[in-house]
Design a protein around this nucleic acid. Structure first.
Length: 1113
RNA sequence: AGAUCCGUAGCUCAGCCUGGUUAGAGCACUACACUGAUAAUGUAGGGGUCAGCAGUUCAAAUCUGCUCGGGUCUACCA
């Protein structure tokens, strides 16, 4: 039995996906697509590791589609693209999940459950949904190596991380310091930003706020202040919502460009005369307008209106360096104490900070370096020192006067708690140091576990000195191709500009331990860079410190996690014991180091690494910009002075169809498995890619997938079905010689030209990482060019006539289009492409590949691109469309032939174009003649319009008048302008206008109904002669019989006989067109019989009569 | 608060870079038509202050500035 193209009942995309997937798995299609390119230029791709402790969502499908299509495309372009999968396994989400599951909190770890057991649990949980992920990966057609993934908790992986850390340590980039972090005194623990971003942590609360007055000291620097005031002291006013930080105050920060004023007034609590300094913009907050320049002499304490007067104005930077008296002095915050902590500190002065605003407060910021990140930063910059007068339980330390031991907030749910902030404010009021005390409502973060307010608190942490390489990081970032580019220059570039050192420390349990050991006095420390180094050091320590230590590790360490590493004691060069610092490193370090750690570099795979760094391409969600994209970049620059990736695509979020973020809470999460099984991977992928640019957020709507399924895949599938139907009849298997392009009919050359143009566009878009545009171009081609024009117009060629050159040309052309389309769509719709390719290639064996993914991407043959032809065809389409609209208007169906149409045109090119396209237009619109009314024809009325583009430049303001004048031109004037140099009179001024300055058209033809679109106008002659009516009846009759053939399920090639009941209205037409009719309906016998035995009633243009059709073969 | 993306028909999106005449397509709705591939298609209809305001210009959906609304990221503030 000979091979036939498979024909199908209906399109079933999910089934196609399943079948193709089965084939891929059986034949190792993915592996082969990589091995086939052995020795070719590598295209390096990095997989950002997902965490398998949560279920995959639909948003994972979009980013993975994007990654997959690029890798598939590059493979087809001849590169070898290895794709190593990976798993992110450490980190807080994992730990929080385990805590929740076990019903414990962080404090219980090490008490209720050993660290060993806890980490064992984490290790189990972290791969909980690996199977689900692998399943999704396969079903969505994401080709990535699942068999040899990198896993961040494995010893080899961690060993490379240690190596990286040691490199940084040796370069002096790894250091310990204090950082100000969110801290919960109630829970006794620092909080990560992740925890702080839990819903409900930020609450509106009312706190006691105070505007307090710091007394300036008169000296050389402050002289400009004192020049204008003599009698009363001068105070710098600052505002705080946390009065408990005031004893720890060490500075006052002003904005360099903010305008400040010195104001003479009275203290509203003590009524004493004072001078105060504050931002001019905030005067209104503290002083009533009526009091300005009031009478200072008559003022009495208690008066409602307090007089005030601006004495002088300063810029922030003029105030820098002014010293002031400490606001609240205790034993614990004496200068002596400050200097004992920071020996060369110079506190109690005015400093400059960019972060100061005039939105709230006074424009002068009370600065306590221990209790705010900004404060700490400027404190350090201006050497203020640091005071931490509150301990980790949240109470004042001893030596802080009457406040000693008091909690700064009610952390213990103490019913007798009194607010220390109020007491501090009262004390300051009494001391003439408060200007305004009031309740202030603001948004403040709370600990998600205890519901108590957090404070910002200095905690020890290890840092990577990323700021040391800032310039280089910015420089190298400029070489990275960001999609979209705004993310690179904006979000990412901005982030780099404002970079701070990378806080690596996490005080958790399940993560990569920081491999630093140090002596108790912190004078000696080492950073371990490999397992071997650690094992040697373990044994060395036993030599030096005695045989009773590290007993469990004499055979080497088995697991680089806690608690084991913490049990190891090493010996310092001077023979002192060293213990590991307790911190783990930020999980982002794990993933940022994946270019090295995935290959266990430099312990193994040095050669592979050389060819696999940096990446040519990575892609993740835009939320990774300051996550993975940053850590990859930072480490590559610090370790290798290189970028980590050359191109990065950041895709946007997937929202639900109403534009809301998908969340479990709202219940609007889309289950990717369900989507894939319902619509298939191809339709889902195609929808995700073509609906919106990857970086725009996508409103996910199933209706959109249905549309893609129906419109794009349905159309392409139908095109194939059509082809298969007739190719099987004619036994077309592409065995005939390829018919040269120039010998093919115009319509074939046209679609082939469009195809080559399409290849060029698609290639260009894929090369520029614009898959959305690529997909949309393909859609356009399949729908409006291939299916609804080429196939539609060529239909007859496939089923009529001899199997000769014209027919073979049609088959070859359509085949080539479909085969090429397989290649073009393969990156986005890999299953359908392979399925269609298989259906075609199994019969013709044109390409020696078993999968489209093993072929080369189509290359555009520019010689075949005929833009003139493409333009002409467009004109034919438009003309046909206009004629059809006219037919509709006068209600004459297309099956009724009409005699002629008229097309007025004044452009010689259009004349020849229309003539060339006449056969197409005639057959499509069923008219006999096309009459072109050219410029020589004077009986049509010409109209003119200004060419705004050319005239606007010349005329400027006179444009409007000119346009109006031009619209009034008659035929004669238009002709004069076309001859050139016509003087147009506007406002008494003569302007020469030429042919190119006007557009001439005509949209009416006397006596005819016309239709226009743009410059094109068509008129239809609707005169119906008897001949035309007869032919119309004949064609109508053919249509009815064809429908009957179809209803009776006759084969395409079945010959029939026909008996017709005579009917006056159509009889003559049927007789006259008998040959035509028989030819169309494949009838061998054709007879009339008034006594028709049986048959069905048909209706031809209101004539109703019976016919009987029967097979004769 | 800063950065960034988005705002065009009931819905999904083009057009904006490079200003120009009547702002387009698909979906959905209605009617008619075409079809021996079609769950397709064609024609017609309704549907738009192009988020708003101001500026530049002869001319603004398009360029500039501001405002508003939505998303995301970062930060969290005296």
């Amino acid at each position: 039995m000979e091979l036939k193209y498979k024909e199908y009942q209906q399109l079933n995309l999910p089934k196609i996906g399943d079948d193709v997937l089965l084939e891929w798995n059986k034949s190792g299609t993915f592996e082969k697509s990589v091995s086939l390119r052995e020795g070719k230029t590598p295209f390096v791709f990095y997989e950002g590791p997902p965490s398998a402790n949560g279920m995959p969502g639909i948003h994972h499908v979009i980013s993975r589609t994007l990654k997959d299509l690029v890798c598939r495309y590059k493979t087809m372009k001849g590169f070898q693209v290895k794709r190593k999968g990976g798993w992110d396994t450490h980190g807080l989400p994992v730990e929080l999940g385990v805590e929740k599951e076990l019903g414990i909190t962080k404090e219980d770890i090490g008490r209720k459950i050993s660290v060993e057991e806890y980490n064992k649990k984490c290790r189990e949980v972290v791969m909980r949904f690996k199977d689900k992920w692998d399943d999704l990966t396969r079903k969505m057609g994401y080709w990535v190596d699942l068999n040899n993934p990198y896993v961040t908790f494995e010893n080899e992986y961690i060993e490379t991380l240690w190596w990286c850390l040691q490199q940084l340590y040796n370069k002096g980039y790894l250091y310990q310091s204090v950082s100000i972090q969110p801290y919960s005194p109630a829970a006794g623990t620092g909080l990560s930003s992740h925890e702080l971003n839990q819903p409900g942590t930020y609450k509106d609360v009312k706190d006691t706020s105070a505007v307090v007055m710091f007394e300036a000291i008169k000296d050389k620097i402050s002289a400009p202040l004192f020049d204008s005031s003599q009698q009363a002291p001068i105070y710098l006013m600052a505002w705080t919502t946390t009065p408990w930080t005031l004893p720890s105050n060490l500075g006052l920060t002003v904005g360099p460009k903010i305008e400040y004023v010195l104001v003479k007034t009275f203290n509203p609590y003590t009524y004493l005369p004072i001078y105060v300094v504050l931002a001019k913009a905030l005067l209104g907050k503290y002083f009533k307008a009526e009091g300005e320049n009031g009478d200072f002499e008559t003022y009495k304490g208690g008066d409602k209106i307090i007089p005030w007067k601006i004495i002088n104005t300063y810029e922030g930077k003029d105030l820098e360096g002014i010293s002031y008296h400490q606001l609240m002095s205790f034993d614990s915050n004496s200068l002596k104490e400050i200097l004992s902590i920071t020996p060369k500190a110079t506190p109690f002065k005015v400093i400059i900070g960019d972060f100061v605003t005039t939105e709230d407060g006074t424009g002068i910021v009370h600065t306590a370096p221990a209790f705010g990140a900004d404060d700490y930063k400027v404190g350090k910059k201006f050497n203020l020192g640091i005071l931490t007068l509150v301990d980790k339980e949240g109470k004042f330390v001893q030596g802080t006067g009457e406040f000693s031991g008091r909690y700064v907030k009610d952390y213990k749910n103490d019913p007798s708690y009194t607010d220390v902030n109020v007491d501090i404010s009262v004390k300051l009021k009494k001391e003439n140091r408060a200007f305004k005390v009031e309740k202030y409502e603001h948004n403040y973060p709370h600990c998600w576990r205890t519901d108590k307010p957090i404070i910002y608190y200095p905690l020890d942490a290890w840092f990577i000195k990323t700021t040391a390489a800032k310039e280089r990081m910015v420089e190298l970032n400029n070489t990275i191709n960001w999609k979209p580019s705004s993310t690179g220059s904006g979000r990412f570039g901005n982030w780099l500009e404002n970079m701070v050192d990378w806080n690596l420390s996490r005080s958790r349990f399940w993560g990569t331990p920081l491999p630093i050991w140090r002596t108790e006095d912190e004078t000696e420390s080492i950073c371990i860079g490999s397992i071997m180094e650690l094992n040697t050091a373990i044994l060395h320590a036993r030599e030096v410190l005695g045989r009773n230590i590290n007993e469990a590790f004499v055979d080497g360490i088995k697991d680089l996690h806690k608690p084991y590493v913490d049990e190891i004691i090493l010996a310092s060069p001077t023979g002192k014991p060293m213990r590991r610092v307790p911190d783990l490193v930020d999980v982002w370090f794990d993933s940022g180091a994946m270019p090295y750690a995935q290959w266990h570099y430099p312990f193994e795979n040095k050669e592979i690494f050389k060819t696999a760094f940096p990446a040519d391409f990575i892609a993740e969600g835009v939320d990774q910009t300051r996550g993975w994209f940053y850590t990859l970049h930072a480490l590559a620059v610090l370790l290798f002075d290189s970028v980590a990736y050359k191109t990065v695509v950041s895709n946007g979020l997937v929202l639900d169809k109403s534009g809301n973020k998908m969340s479990k809470r709202l219940g609007n999460v889309v289950d990717p498995f369900q989507t894939l099984s319902l619509y298939g991977a191809d339709a889902t992928r195609w929808y995700l890619i073509t609906n919106a640019s990857p970086w725009d957020s996508l409103k996910f709507d199933e209706e959109g997938i249905k549309e893609v399924q129906r419109k794009f895949f349905g159309t392409l599938y139908n095109t194939y079905q059509f082809f298969a139907l007739y190719a099987n009849v004619d036994r077309f298997t592409f065995k005939e010689a390829y018919i040269p392009y120039r010998e093919r009919p115009e319509i074939d050359r046209w679609i082939l030209s469009s195809l080559q143009s399409l290849i060029a566009k698609v290639t260009d878009n894929f090369d520029n990482y614009e898959p959305t545009q690529a997909g949309r171009h393909i859609e356009e081609f399949v729908d409006s060019h291939l299916s609804n024009w080429y196939v539609r117009l060529s239909r007859r060629r496939f089923w009529k006539g001899e199997y000769g050159t014209d027919k073979i040309s049609a088959y070859q052309t359509l085949y080539e289009c479909m085969e090429t389309l397989c290649g073009l769509i393969a990156p986005i719709a890999p299953f359908f492409a392979d399925w269609l390719f298989g259906n075609l290639n199994q019969i013709t064996k044109r390409l020696g590949a078993s999968s489209i993914h093993h072929t080369d991407f189509p290359v555009s043959n520019e010689k075949r691109i005929n833009t003139v032809l493409e333009r002409k065809m467009e004109l034919a389409q438009q003309t046909s469309s206009l004629v059809l609209s006219l037919r509709k208007k006068v209600n004459i169906k297309v099956r009724q032939p009409l005699q002629q149409i008229f097309i007025p045109t004044l452009d010689d090119n259009t004349v020849s174009d229309i003539n060339d396209m006449a056969p197409v237009i005639k057959s499509e619109t069923n008219v006999k003649e096309i009459n072109i009314l050219d410029s020589g024809n004077n009986f049509i009325r010409k109209k003119s319009k200004a060419n705004y583009k050319t005239l606007g430049k010349k005329l400027g303001p006179k444009m409007k008048a000119a346009a109006k004048a031009i619209e009034g031109f008659d035929n004669k004037t238009i002709e004069l302008v076309r001859q050139g140099g016509y003087p147009l009179n506007i406002d008494g001024e003569s302007l020469i206008i030429n042919n190119e300055d006007i557009e001439v058209f005509t949209d009416e033809i006397p006596g005819f109904e016309v239709a226009s679109r743009g410059p094109l106008t068509v008129a239809l002659d609707i005169t119906l002669t008897d001949d035309l009516l007869n032919e119309g009846n004949a064609r109508e009759f053919v249509n009815r019989i064809q429908n009957l053939r179809k209803e009776n399920r006759f084969e395409l090639t079945d010959r029939i006989g026909i008996i017709i009941e005579p009917h006056d209205q159509v009889q003559s037409a049927l007789i006259k067109f008998k040959d035509y009719i028989c030819g169309e309906i494949l009838a061998d016998t054709f007879e009339f019989n008034p006594a028709i035995p049986d048959g069905v009633s048909i209706e031809v243009n209101e004539a109703i009569f019976k016919v009987n059709v029967f097979k004769t073969t």
